[in-house]
Design a protein around this nucleic acid. Structure first.
Length: 809
RNA sequence: GCUCCCAUGGCGGAAUUGGUAGACGCGACGGACUUAAAAUCCGUUGGCAGCGAUGCCGUGCCGGUUCGAUUCCGGCUGGGAGCACCA
């Protein structure tokens, strides 16, 4: 058979589609398997070769599962709200809706050309009202349960995109979309109380099958720490009656006796309260001003050189020893973590130490060890200069003792802090889900009634965000003005939209029931399909999409809408495909590979096989046209296999090799070791070539094993064997081969024979040979005998089937 | 700075979790076919020495445990990812 992929591939894609071969059947009695890939953002650039790799793993598993008799749900949709489309709309003055639908058509065509076995009947896009109706519905549920709140705080703001960003969207101080520097602005924004779910998100990790790297990244992002809140007293010089408490958070409350000053964040409200008491207010205000102009990036640059201003006219009192200590304002203390104020222990904290050295504050050592003349000592040791704590010599005991003391005196208590912050949720942009809230002057903030959903995104003339920091929706009076659902009085709509991540936070649920207009999904269907059995996606989503969607799902579980707290039973990730130069693919470097070009010139099967063969699935690997051709050569040899089939009796040796390959390929696919699965098939075809002739069973088994990787070619061979006479008995739905364990075992084994740990020869022995027999066979090996001659045998080690080692002196 | 991960031929990568290092593919070299090239097929391919059998060296570096270490432990060096003044 000549390998004409250009003819074969569209032919089978059409036949599978016509026969609805990959349709998932709700409530089927077969065991369900739900495989998920991160649905694409339909950008104008079209599909990237990285999409192919990301989707191929679950594709291979899904095809194997169908052959194993599972009822498989392998869906696809589009995550179609977002800034790139909106920016393109502004540039071309075309409605984002039109651009989006066009891009979706393009993506669909491209995905189909690769032959992915998606159930296209469940396709949807997050920007369509019948979908975002339910995104809004879930938002309202969050609102009803007190998980949506508005607060004026310092927020991350991208001046380029003119939009407020969440912490997750501004990792490393850079905007997630345009990569420009993010600045901090005080702004009134909507938050989702994800911190309420911090513990559930942490604990849930123990119940799921995620790689450690993913779990650790989520744990680090959530950043749970246990410590203590302690109340210090602040008072004005000369007027002790004018006092207040200043609460701090610390993880080392046992060092309280070493506190020599306090530091508050520049934005701390205590400053405003004592404005009239602060004698150097000019300096304090100037410093505040200076800090507010710095970007997050600048603020984290000067790690060594601490800046700050001493607050004159105020002092604090250390609650454990009554000592008066100075208070400073400095930007190394953040308003967003803890209480925005710290107790400074310069002897045992390097930042406090640097600050104390710069400002000439006392340093009192309270833990023995190190050399505090040079640097802060952060290790463990015996407590000193610490009153009742001096008897303790480790931090666990001293912290426990101090906590007890604080509780007894009523000056502090144990507490928990998280690095993760609440999710800033509104965006001052057009192309997103309208936030279904109404501002009523009488009733306050009121949710849009559920029966009025979806709150449709109105058409606007101009998609450009307003210079006043408002969404384009703010300019549409017919949208803004409404009546309050509670009191019926005039009210105004919220005009901001939801962030990019809203639609993807629950999309996997929609796939269980994509067309439902009564609920986000039918509960029975959720119960049948959920949780997702295997979810593959990129590492870049671990502290964004993965965290957000787990949060929403935990919430939906808590209000009784879904059957499990965790949405994904198993998560994996793919490594990047780099350009042939080893660099990350980018247009500017000119090293981008377009999957469509590869499909056209080499075929989808070659592309699919290659991305799975390139290397370890989880690692980055550079693209190589030469290696791609190697996979093409392999498939051409496969196409020629039927010519080798003849009516001969099964050769025992070949049969054993086929059984071993069934085992190897089956196990490797389960372990996502796709490269070695394909290597095993290459080895087998080499063995076939050496044998010259093979049986039809050999061939059929081979193409079944290869089928998940190269479904079109193998389907064509299957048809050529007359196995698809009815037109619907597809190879890709046939039974996965089973192996006979007995036949994977060799009758004889070659083992290495070592003398003092060095291999000196090999012997071939019966697999079940007795130890005595093997030991004498080993000694008989001429080269081994040469190395043992004249020496005394000290020890003989035989690991059956593995190694034989003689220790001689 | 902290946390985690990684290091194997000219290249991508294998190695049954302590048991013959380098599977499979690419590239390279030699040969067949061809007027020629491409394609295809056959052979060789970690380094050094040797006609060869074979020997020595070899999984970033130094040391340890072990009959035996790519695998385990300690210490370096180099690279990657994440977090980043988190109190």
């Amino acid at each position: 058979m000549k390998y004409n992929f250009a003819k074969i591939e569209p032919k089978w894609q059409k036949r599978w589609e016509d026969a609805k071969a990959f349709r998932a059947v709700d409530f089927d009695s077969k065991k369900k398997w739900y495989g998920l890939v991160e649905f694409p953002y339909p950008s104008g650039a079209g599909m990237h070769v990285g999409h192919i790799k990301a989707y191929s793993s679950i594709e291979v598993l899904a095809r194997k599962r169908r052959m194993q008799g599972y009822n498989v749900l392998f869906p696809i949709g589009f995550d179609s709200f977002g800034l790139p489309t909106e920016n393109y709309a502004i540039k071309t003055n075309t409605h984002p809706h039109i651009i989006t639908e066009k891009n979706i058509r393009h993506f669909t065509e491209q995905l189909k050309s690769v032959g992915f076995s998606f159930d296209w009947e469940r396709e949807f896009a997050t920007s369509r009202p019948d979908y975002y109706k339910w995104t809004q519905w879930i938002f309202l549920k969050l609102f009803d349960h007190g998980l949506v709140f508005r607060a004026k705080t310092l927020v991350n703001y991208c001046p380029h995109c003119k939009v407020v960003l969440s912490n997750e969207d501004s990792q490393g101080g850079k905007c997630d979309i345009c990569h420009s520097d993010v600045i901090q602005l005080p702004k009134d924004v909507w938050y989702l109380r994800i911190t309420e779910y911090a513990d559930k998100l942490l604990d849930g990790l123990d119940t799921v099958d995620y790689p450690d790297s993913i779990k650790q990244q989520e744990i680090a992002w959530i950043g749970k720490s246990t410590g203590a809140f302690v109340n210090f007293t602040v008072a004005a010089d000369g007027d002790e009656s004018d006092c207040d408490t200043l609460e701090i958070y610390t993880t080392r409350c046992d060092t309280l006796f070493g506190v020599t000053f306090m530091v508050v964040a520049p934005e701390h409200p205590v400053l405003d309260k004592y404005k009239n008491r602060i004698t150097n207010w000019d300096k304090v205000e100037a410093y505040r001003e200076e800090c507010s102009r710095k970007s997050e990036f600048e603020r984290t640059q000067l790690v060594k050189d601490k800046t700050g201003v001493r607050i004159e006219g105020l002092y604090a009192v250390n609650p454990v020893n009554g000592k008066k200590i100075p208070i400073f304002i400095a930007d190394y203390v953040m308003m967003g973590y803890g209480t925005g104020a710290i107790m400074a222990v310069p002897a045992h904290d390097q930042r406090d130490y640097d600050f104390a050295k710069t400002f000439g504050v006392d340093i009192i050592q309270v833990i023995e060890g190190g050399d505090i003349e040079k640097e802060a000592y952060t290790g463990d040791g015996r407590m000193i200069n610490s009153g009742f704590l001096d008897k303790y010599d480790n931090k666990k005991d001293s912290i426990a003792a101090m906590l007890e003391y604080l509780a007894e005196k009523g000056i502090g208590h144990e507490g928990i802090q998280y690095k993760m912050k609440d999710w800033a949720f509104n965006r001052q942009r057009y192309w997103g889900e309208p936030i279904p809230l109404i501002h009523c002057p009488v009733c306050g903030t009121v949710g849009v009634p559920y029966d009025q959903l979806p709150l449709e995104l109105p058409d606007v003339e101009n998609f450009e965000p307003g210079t006043d920091g408002q969404s384009p929706l703010a300019g549409i009076e017919s949208f803004v003005n409404c009546t309050c659902p509670k009191c019926g009085g005039p009210a105004k709509r919220e005009t901001d939209t939801m962030p990019q991540w809203a639609g993807s936070s629950w999309y996997f649920l929609r796939f269980t029931d994509a067309c439902n207009d009564k609920a986000f999904a039918d509960r029975k269907k959720i119960d049948y399909w959920m949780p997702v059995d295997h979810y593959n996606g990129g590492m870049e989503h671990v502290t964004r999409h993965l965290l957000y969607s787990r949060f929403w799902h935990h919430f939906l579980y808590d209000i009784g809408e879904v059957n499990t707290p965790e949405p994904y039973a198993k998560r994996s990730y793919q490594g990047l495909i780099l350009g042939s130069d080893g660099e990350k693919m980018s247009k500017s470097k000119g090293n981008v590979i377009d999957p469509v070009d590869i499909v056209e010139s080499y075929g989808a099967d070659t592309l699919r096989t290659y991305v799975m063969f390139m290397g370890d699935y989880g690692s980055a690997a550079p693209w190589s046209d030469e290696s791609l051709k190697g996979c093409r050569r392999f498939l051409e040899r496969v196409a020629a296999l039927p010519e080798m089939v003849s009516d001969i009796p099964e050769d025992a040796e070949i049969e054993s090799k086929v059984h071993k390959t069934i085992k190897k390929v089956s196990e490797d696919i389960e372990n996502m070791k796709f490269n070695t699965a394909i290597a095993a098939l290459m080895t087998l075809i080499n063995d076939f070539a050496k044998a010259g002739k093979i049986t039809e069973w050999d061939l059929v088994t081979f193409i079944k094993l290869l089928s998940p990787f190269a479904p079109h070619l193998t389907e064509e061979i299957w048809e050529g064997l007359g196995k698809n006479a009815d037109g619907v008995t597809f190879l890709t739905l046939s039974a996965w081969p089973e192996y006979d364990e007995e036949k994977t075992k060799d009758k004889t084994v070659r083992i290495g024979v070592q003398v003092n740990g060095k291999v000196r020869g090999t012997i071939e022995i019966a697999a079940d040979a007795a130890k005595e027999e093997v030991l004498s066979a080993g000694k008989a090996e001429p080269n081994v005998a040469r190395f043992m001659e004249g020496k005394t045998l000290v020890k003989e080690i035989y690991v059956p089937g593995r190694i034989l080692n003689y220790v001689v002196k």
